[in-house]
Design a protein around this nucleic acid. Sequence first.
DNA 1: GCGACAG
DNA 2: ATCTTGTCGC
Length: 193
Amino acid sequence: MDYFFNFLKLFQGLVAKNVKITHLGLDNVSSICAIDVAYKGNIGFAAAIRKADNQIEKRVISGNIDLPYVPGFLFIREAPIMIKALEGFQCDLILVDGHGLAHPRKSGIATVIGVLIDKPVIGVAKSKLIGEIVNEGNREYIIVNGEKVGIKSGKYFYSPGNLTDLDDCISLSSKGYPDILKLADKLSKEAKK
DNA sequence: GCGACAG
DNA sequence: ATCTTGTCGC
């Protein structure tokens, strides 16, 4: 199992080299998607929500997830089913439950998904994985190796996944925890029942 | 060796 | 993430 995770690290290194940190601008976003996964034993239930104008589309799929959860390697468990759940949903921005750049190898699940499907992604996590929280101005930044890799707002952590930047994260966080993520969380948890 | 550790 | 009762707070 040792060489397996070593391989995953190499993969994450490749992902990190291909991330594009660019400003998206939430004003240009008219369609947005969110995904979350809930479990019932080894079965994962992925919920994808798409919101455009006032139209909301939902999708839930399920599948076996046997690999163990190891901090820093969440993507190997959830990225495959999340990508599948998003299939066919056109979105200007995707919100993923987990970190993006705020990761030991700058390759959290939001980054992996964003690079693989080449779409704008922002990672929103409920707890910290790495970094120290530093107050500057009126905000709390997630600092890793002296670099601002994300921002903390309230009890949540936002970091760029792909084709977005810190400013986008700040804009998003200023609106509070996204309703669409709450919906995805709720839907996935309902599905496992 | 010890603490930290997305979901 | 999930297992779970009562309990503190808005």
